[in-house]
């Protein structure tokens, strides 16, 4: 039997809500968000349930969920919500908390983002070839989308060229400083 303990002291749920600028009691659990979410069918907890968990102070379950990584940030939920509850912001902050404890319930998504940002740090711009290649390698999906490679090569959609920013050192320093700032949040 789960115990509903209302922990009113400073808790992770309150922090996530405060960082997102959300008053959790605004949500009356109507479910319009879940119903409008394009990714809801594959989520382990529904968008509405994400808010419910925070309302009950059960932030750890949210942070451990696959749902926060499957969100596509399309913002259909908040733009239809009768009470303007900023669910994308809640999810984003839940992700930051997950990252803080090195947790990512959908590792492929985490890896994709990591590789993307590594590229940007190194080159200043995203490199699609490196991104796809490194992602396939690190996620273990070695042959993903490989069937499309001949077409892309033939038509010059992808190639060996690396596109960089002249001031890439500046971009690297900038990102490093930003990372530090993010860690402290």
């Amino acid at each position: 039997m789960a115990q509903l303990q209302f922990d009113n002291s400073a808790s992770l749920a309150e922090k996530i809500a405060a960082d997102a600028g959300v008053t959790l009691s605004d949500c009356y659990q109507c479910g319009k968000c879940s119903a409008g979410c394009p990714m809801s069918a594959s989520m382990d907890i529904q968008p509405r349930q994400a808010v419910r968990l925070l309302q009950l102070g059960m932030a750890d379950e949210l942070v451990r969920s696959r749902m926060i990584w499957l969100c596509a940030s399309c913002h259909m939920c908040v733009d239809r919500c009768p009470n303007d509850v900023d669910l994308p912001a809640l999810i984003e902050n839940a992700r930051y908390e997950a990252q803080r404890i090195k947790l990512c319930a959908v590792p492929e998504v985490g890896k994709f983002n990591d590789i993307f940002m590594e590229n940007v740090k190194n080159f200043g711009k995203s490199q699609e070839v490196i991104l796809e290649g490194a992602y396939n390698l690190l996620s273990g999906n070695l042959l993903q989308d490989m069937g499309s490679v001949p077409h892309m090569l033939r038509h010059g959609i992808v190639g060996p060229e690396i596109r960089t920013v002249r001031e890439r050192e500046h971009v690297r320093r900038m990102l490093t400083a930003a990372e530090k700032e993010d860690e402290g949040c």
């Binding site: 109507c30 479910g31 319009k32 968000c33 879940s34 119903a35 409008g36 809801s40 529904q46 009768p82």
Partner: peptide, 19 residues
């Protein structure tokens, strides 16, 4: 129990989506 998010027509039916 759920608020309808969207109603759209497809193949002669009005599809109502709610949770």
């Amino acid at each position: 129990r759920g608020r309808v998010a969207k109603i759209f027509r497809e193949n002669g039916k009005l599809i109502c989506r709610g949770e």
